[in-house]
Amino acid sequence: MAISGASGTIYGIRLLEAIHANPDIEVHLVMSAWAKENLAIENTGYVESQVNALADHVYDPRNMGAAIASGSFHHDGMVIVPSSMKTIAAIATGMGDSLIGRAADVTLKERRPLLIVPRESPFNQIHLENMLKLSRMGVEIIPPIPAFYNNPQTIDALINHNTMKLLDHLHIDNSLSPRWQGLAQAKMAAREAKNHE
């Protein structure tokens, strides 16, 4: 798992928390220098040591000799959350000049799952073309777009919903957020939410 320098470090933290709760899953974590800067300013309630404690192995983003920099390192998938446009561009062009870019590159070449959570708005044509290129290579692009059919009442509920989607795409069972149960259920939930106002 990688946390890059885009805004939204809480998305990465929440995914780490959810996976950390499952002792059968081993997590290897890389945080870019700018991810660490964002962590300090985004008021997540976490400091770097607490985030690192949620992973089994933590790597310096400049350590190109790390285990995860080799295709011979076996893993079930990689997720970059959030992902900056710089990170996406580096992966799309094969520029493995950081451990995040290199780990993503070997994930692609070994044809393992790669999930990217882009955090930028609006997207320009370069951003879109880079994401389309990666999507055509099988990368799953999962932007943190909120859903409102489950009547979220807090920011945490919105974050949990996106985290649920990431866990689903990593094939990790979870019940982190309410799922779509059909129109009748959605209408009933909306009525209950309105009654609580």
Rank of each mutant, 00 (worst) to 15 (best):
His127Ser: 03
Val51Arg: 06
Gly8Asn: 07
Arg62Pro: 02
Ser121His: 14
Ile155Ala: 03
Ala55Cys: 04
Leu134Gly: 02
Gly96Leu: 05
Asp97Trp: 07
Val117His: 03
Lys109Ser: 08
Ala18Met: 07
Thr107Cys: 12
Ala189Val: 01
Ile80Leu: 11
Ile91Thr: 03
Val117Glu: 05
Ile126Pro: 03
Asp24Ala: 11
Gly8Arg: 02
Gly96Ala: 15
Leu128Gly: 01
Gln185Ala: 09
Ile172Phe: 10
Ile116Gly: 12
Ser72Trp: 09
Arg112Gln: 10
Lys109Phe: 06
Leu158Tyr: 04
Ala33Gly: 11
Ala157Thr: 02
Arg191Ile: 08
Glu48Thr: 14
Ile25Asn: 09
Asp156Cys: 01
Asn43Asp: 14
Lys86Asn: 14
Gly96Phe: 06
Ile116Tyr: 07
Leu128Thr: 11
Leu114Lys: 10
Leu183Val: 10
Leu158Trp: 03
Asn162Ile: 12
Met31His: 11
Arg62Glu: 14
Ala90His: 02
Arg112Thr: 05
His57Leu: 05
Thr87His: 04
Val79Trp: 05
Val30Asn: 04
Met1Cys: 06
Asp76Arg: 15
Asp97Cys: 09
Met164Phe: 02
Ile80Gly: 07
Tyr46Lys: 08
Glu37Met: 14
Glu110Trp: 09
Met78Asn: 05
His169Glu: 14
Ile155Gln: 00
Ala103Ser: 11
Gly94Val: 15
Ala33Ser: 12
Leu183Pro: 00
Thr154His: 00
Asn124Gln: 11
Lys109Ile: 08
Glu197Ala: 13
Ile25Gly: 07
Tyr149Glu: 01
His161Ala: 13
Met64Trp: 08
Asp60Asn: 12
Ile68Trp: 00
Pro118Phe: 07
Ala189Arg: 15
Met188Arg: 11
Phe148Ile: 11
Arg14Ser: 10
Val47Ile: 13
Asp105Pro: 05
Gly77Gln: 15
Trp180Gln: 01
Glu110Thr: 15
His171Ser: 10
Asp97Leu: 07
Arg136Glu: 15
Asp168Ser: 13
Gly65Glu: 01
Ile88His: 07
Pro178Gly: 04
Leu115Asp: 08
His161Glu: 09
Met137Tyr: 12
Ile155Glu: 02
Ala193Cys: 11
Ala89Pro: 11
Ile145Pro: 00
Glu192Lys: 15
